[in-house]
Amino acid sequence: MPERYLRQSALAHLGLESRAVDDPGDAGLVLCERAHLGKVGLRGDAGDKGFLDAVAKELGFALPLRPNTVAAGEDVTAFWLGPNEWLLAVIPYEGTPLAEDLDKALTGLHAGATVLTDSRTVIGVSGPAARDVLAKGCPLDLHPSAFPSGSCAQSLLAKADVLIYLHEDGGRFDLYVPRSYADYLWRWLEDAGAEYGVAVSGD
């Protein structure tokens, strides 16, 4: 892991802070980068009660077992990625202690926790045109009847791999995007949203 003072978010070079506004006005699309959100990859057997119990004890809530669902505690959000794979998003920044604690709790089990904090960044997409803009490049059905609040799904957005999460309040999509696609995806979003007006907000 790099020294903390060397850490840069994947979109640091775009100077987004200087463009951030408190009031997006009549912009149809509001973008932000949620930089340095801690992330931990978790693998384990969903059929093993010992694994599920150990994780639930560590996190304070049970892992989501239904496809495309999310479970959240105070500081941690767990996304279902597959039948034996989850992504944990951790607030505040440091994902390391949680991964270490989980690793300890999972000792002896066929399971593991990996720090993925800097592998991806998170782009927040909100505003009245958010669904329309995402629909331009994503094959998922994003209609509220098919993709309700609190859902997550891994798919493609403009050919880039993303994990899409719609917050419980339905107000914002979070796109978990691999670091190397982040610049491309941000520029694609600005282009796709241009017809609705784009504003940048703080985290």
Partner: peptide
């Protein structure tokens, strides 16, 4: 485009496969 029923995720577009 095919809509393919992933046994784990449910129906998804062919480009994901």
């Amino acid at each position: 485009m095919l809509l393919i029923e992933c046994p784990f995720c449910g129906p998804r577009a062919e480009v994901e496969f």
